[in-house]
Design a protein around this nucleic acid. Structure first.
Lengths: 194, 194
DNA sequence: CGCGACGTTGATTTGCCTCAACGATTGTGG
DNA sequence: CCACAATCGTTGAGGCAAATCAACGTCGCG
C-alpha cells in the first residue's frame, strides 16, 4: 500500500504516530494516478490539496514575465508538493504543478487537513517538521543563488539531489538553476573536461 | 511589556491561545538587550535559542568562500530569527546573527521550546504557521532570484520590505540581493532618473 | 514516418563584477 | 570635543559571466 510510505515518512523517532492517528491518515488521504505532463495545479486555480508523491516526479513552476517556465521545486517519491499560500488562503495560485513522469500520489483536502491539525497534535507536529526541513533546504539554496556562480549552483544541485539529475532533462535543471539551457550545456562540457 | 508583542503576533484569529498557554510563553521567554554589532549567533556555535525581535533589527548571514558576508534574512520588530537547522540538530551553525540596531529580543531555549511543542498543541501550531509563512515568502524571493534582473529584485525588495530600506545601509541590501554595492548604486541612479 | 523536444556549438551582446578612486558621513579614542 | 579612521555611496574603466539568437544533428513519441 502506498499510504504506508506516507506513514513511514512521518514516523521519525521524535513524534511516533498512534494507531488512531495512522487510521485517520489512511481515511483522509486519497490515492490518484497521474500521467506524464498532467497538471495537479494550474495558475488561476485555488490549490485544493496537500500532495504526497509516492511514485514518480513533479515540478512546481511559475511563468515569468517573458513567458518562460521557472522551476521552484522538484518532488520525487516520499516528498511533498503544494502551493501552501494558495491552499491556506484559498486564493488563486500563480503556480503550476505538473508530472514529469507517470506518478502515484496521495492527496488530502484542505478541510481534512485542518481537521487533523486540530484534533491530532502529532500530525500537526509532523507537518511542522516537514515544512521546517523544507525551509532549511530552501535557505541553503538561496545562499547558493546569492553567492555562487552557475557552475557552483549546478554542482550543488548534483550533490544535494543525486537521484534527480539522471531522471529529468537538462532544460528542467537549467530552469531550476536560473540559467539558460545553452549555458548549462557549456557548464557541463567544462566539468566533463576537467 | 515586550512579551505582549509576542503574544499578539501569535494570536491570529485561527488558533487563539489559552490563558495557560500565554502564561507558559511568559515563563519560558527571556528578555535581552542587544547592542548594535553584537552577535547572538556566530559560525561554529550551536544555535541555542529561537529569537523573537521585539525592538530593533538583525541580519542573518553566512560568509562565502571569498570571505564576503551574504545576507539571507533581515528580521525587525515582531519577526523571528534563528538557525533552525542548528537549533534542532544541535550541531554547529554556519551562520551569523548580528544586531544592526540596538535591540530588544525575547528568547526561548531549545528544551523549553520542545516542552511547549509537546504539551501545548496550539503553540506548536502557531510555530507551524510562522514557518509556513516564512517558507512561502522565501519561495517568492527564490522566484525573483532565478527569473529577474538585479533591478527587478531591488524593486521587489522595496515593495515587500517597505519599512526596511530606510533603516539599513545599501551595502547590506546589496548583500541580500546578491549584487555588489557598486552595481546597486548604478541601479538606484537609473531608477531615480526614470 | 515525421514532428517536436532535446543537447550542443558558435557569434555577438549585455548584465554585472573587479578594481581604483573620490568626497561625505559616521564613529571612536585620545 | 576634536582628529583621525573607518564605512558609506558614488563614479568610471575594463573584464568576465551569462544571455540572446541562430543553426544543426539526434532522439523519442504520436
Amino acid at each position: 500500500m502506498n499510504i504506508n510510505k506516507l506513514i513511514e515518512s512521518f514516523s521519525n523517532d521524535i513524534f511516533p504516530l498512534s494507531e488512531e492517528e495512522i487510521n485517520q491518515l489512511k481515511s483522509k488521504f486519497k490515492e490518484r494516478q497521474i500521467k506524464r505532463r498532467q497538471f495537479i495545479l494550474q495558475e488561476g486555480d485555488v490549490c485544493k490539496h496537500y500532495t504526497f508523491v509516492s511514485e514518480g516526479c513533479f515540478k512546481l513552476y511559475k511563468i515569468d514575465h517573458s513567458g518562460k517556465e521557472r522551476n521552484l521545486q522538484f518532488s520525487i517519491e516520499n516528498e511533498w508538493i503544494s502551493d501552501l499560500g494558495s491552499l491556506y488562503s484559498e486564493t488563486p495560485s500563480a503556480l503550476y504543478i505538473e508530472a514529469i513522469e507517470q506518478s502515484t500520489i496521495l492527496q488530502i483536502e484542505r478541510k481534512d487537513l485542518v481537521y487533523l491539525y486540530t484534533h491530532f497534535p502529532n500530525i500537526d507536529r509532523n507537518f511542522r517538521v516537514i515544512i521546517e526541513n523544507s525551509f532549511i533546504a530552501l535557505q541553503k539554496r538561496m545562499f547558493q543563488n546569492i553567492s555562487a556562480t552557475a557552475e557552483e549552483r549546478y554542482l550543488y544541485f548534483l550533490k544535494t539531489r543525486p537521484n534527480l539529475f539522471n531522471r529529468i532533462s537538462n532544460v528542467q535543471i537549467a530552469s531550476y538553476l536560473g540559467v539558460t539551457p545553452e549555458f548549462l550545456s557549456t557548464i557541463r562540457k567544462k566539468i566533463a573536461h576537467s
